[in-house]
Design a protein around this nucleic acid. Structure first.
Length: 477
RNA sequence: GGCGGCAUAGCCAAGUGGUAAGGCGACGGUCUGCAAAACCGUUAUUCACCGGUUCGAAUCCGGUUGCCGCCUCCA
């Protein structure tokens, strides 16, 4: 099944064909490291992580580059505020970012360049733009991109330069020839980090680092360039202008942008106090539940993050693991394979869903369908053949490889889930086990009043009992 | 003001021309001493509204209303 994907540039779904055979060059805008990463970052990172995983699974030879912006106004402001150096701040938050990515099982990109490591390439690119007449030095020593020299400016975000100038919201800066021009090189102020350049002691503008690093590492034309929707304008528009201005060839074949995350219906912001960091979130929510929540929506749709949504995702994850546990805890016996055909047709439909513009929401629905089908098959006949087990293992490896969920051993996962939060009940596991024993004794003696009393008491404290052929199980609600 | 997006059941959510996936919740049933879990069934004749194109529209076109994003740093 070949892949089709939605291209922001054409506003259409297009068949995916990389520039050079099997090789895919993908660049995604990473984070500016001045604070802890939040749920919005998590979404973008997970979306492109899944895209990268899927491309590899499909056999593409992928080179994935994701940058760190490690020098900019916000980092400098943060450093000044904390009385430390900008380098220390950047390094601290890169470390925190990496910790979060590990927790969320977001795989590292192949190359994770930092802006400050590519000052040389950035300067070289600005010089090329200057020599082509697309950049000019302002009186203060900063360098700006001359938007009037790039005819196609606005093609990605669908904007008309005339109208933008007419719109009063563009800032007026006397250093600029044209209000739309943007900084390629910023002369540094007193106390700010700086590098030597032909123009002034200064630092790179925000947009140029991505153009310089992506084209230096991947070549002048990228197959996929990704990022959050908010980056379309001005960041990606400016990157296009810089890169195409420099190299004269199309910069990006497929522009991919993920939708935003709101929190209980509101935009996340520090002033609203609804700023959810990944670090805080994973204290309450299993990382796989978080991933499941994110991939249960199409990557271009907005997601409203709420306690209810988290709850639903967690339940879904438990449902999958319980089905897997049913199979893995059954000893294989030779005989008819009734799970294998279900697993095989699942793999087909999962691939179809993912190949259609990375439709993870549909792919997740397929997992639900498979779960229902396998549960049903097991209700009809509990026997599991070695072929069934192997087929289901193949499903699990497909799903975990692409979506990054179902990577744990089902038994262990369920154990951990059912023990988590036990402290809130005021009971210990041995106390619960003792009560279960007492209840089972009462049941045996047909003293159902006492048995139900014990069950109700436990339920009040948040412990749910399940009587199964293998004995009584309990879990924290 | 400009540009763009979205509007599908109680809730979440797929679906870009062929007759409404999936999940959660609710209700009824099977199982169970009773529950829980699992399974079965029911829960949108209809996709914000009004027109149009078409044999056929949630899907395409025009208009209306509502919500959101971007236009300044932003995943």
């Amino acid at each position: 099944m070949s892949i089709s994907l939605y291209n922001t540039l054409s506003k259409k779904k297009e068949p995916f064909t990389p520039l050079a055979g099997n090789k895919v060059r993908m660049y995604v805008c990473g984070v500016t490291v001045y604070d802890m990463s939040h749920i919005g970052h998590a979404r973008s990172l997970v979306v492109f992580d899944v895209i990268a995983r899927f491309l590899r699974r499909k056999g593409y030879d992928l080179t994935y580059v994701r940058n760190f912006t490690d020098v900019d106004d916000k980092i400098i402001a943060r450093a000044n505020q904390l009385g430390s150096g900008y380098k220390e701040i950047a390094q601290k938050y890169i470390d925190e970012f990496n910790t979060d990515m590990e927790t969320l099982k977001v795989k590292p990109a192949d190359i994770e360049p930092r802006a400050t490591e590519y000052i040389e390439q950035i300067i070289a690119m600005i010089e090329k733009l200057e020599s082509k007449g697309l950049a000019y030095k302002a009186t203060d020593g900063s360098v700006y991109f001359d938007v009037s020299g790039f005819r196609e400016y606005g093609k990605l975000s669908g904007r008309d330069t005339e109208e933008m100038i007419a719109g009063a919201r563009v800032e007026i800066d006397e250093n600029k020839k044209n209000p739309l021009d943007f900084a390629l090189w910023k002369k540094s102020k007193e106390g700010e980090p700086w590098w030597e350049s032909p123009w002034s002691k200064g630092r790179p503008g925000w947009h140029i680092e991505c153009s310089a690093m992506s084209t230096h590492l991947l070549g002048p034309t990228l197959d996929i360039h990704g990022g959050g929707r908010d980056l379309v304008f001005p960041h990606h528009e400016n990157e296009t202008a810089q890169s195409e201005g420099t190299y004269g060839v199309p910069f990006v074949r497929y522009w991919v942008h993920n939708g935003f995350v709101t929190v209980s219906g509101e935009k996340m912001s520090k002033s609203l106090g609804n700023f959810l960091t990944i670090r805080e979130l994973v204290k309450e929510v299993h990382p796989e539940a978080l991933r499941l929540l994110l991939v249960s929506h199409h990557y271009r749709s907005p997601i409203d993050f709420s306690p209810d949504a988290v709850q639903t995702a967690s339940q879904g994850l438990v449902r999958f693991y319980e089905m897997l546990d049913r199979v893995s805890s059954t000893a294989a016996t030779a005989g008819e394979s009734h799970i294998k055909p279900l697993a095989e047709s699942f793999e087909q439909s999962f691939d179809e869903a993912m190949s259609d513009d990375f439709n993870t929401a549909l792919a997740v629905a397929r997992i639900h369908e498979l779960t229902t089908e396998i549960n049903k098959a097991l209700d009809e006949s509990p026997a599991v053949s070695p072929q069934d087990k192997a087929a289901l293992e193949s499903v699990v490896s497909l799903v975990s490889e692409v979506l990054g969920i179902l990577e744990e051993a089902p038994g262990e996962f369920l154990d951990r889930i059912k023990r988590s939060g036990i402290d809130e009940t005021g009971l210990t596991a041995p106390e619960i086990e003792a009560l279960i024993e007492e209840r089972n004794a009462a049941r045996k003696a047909k003293d159902f009043r006492r048995a139900d009393e014990i069950r109700d008491t436990l339920k009040e404290k948040g412990i749910q009992l399940k009587d199964t052929p293998e004995g009584t199980l309990w879990e924290k609600l």
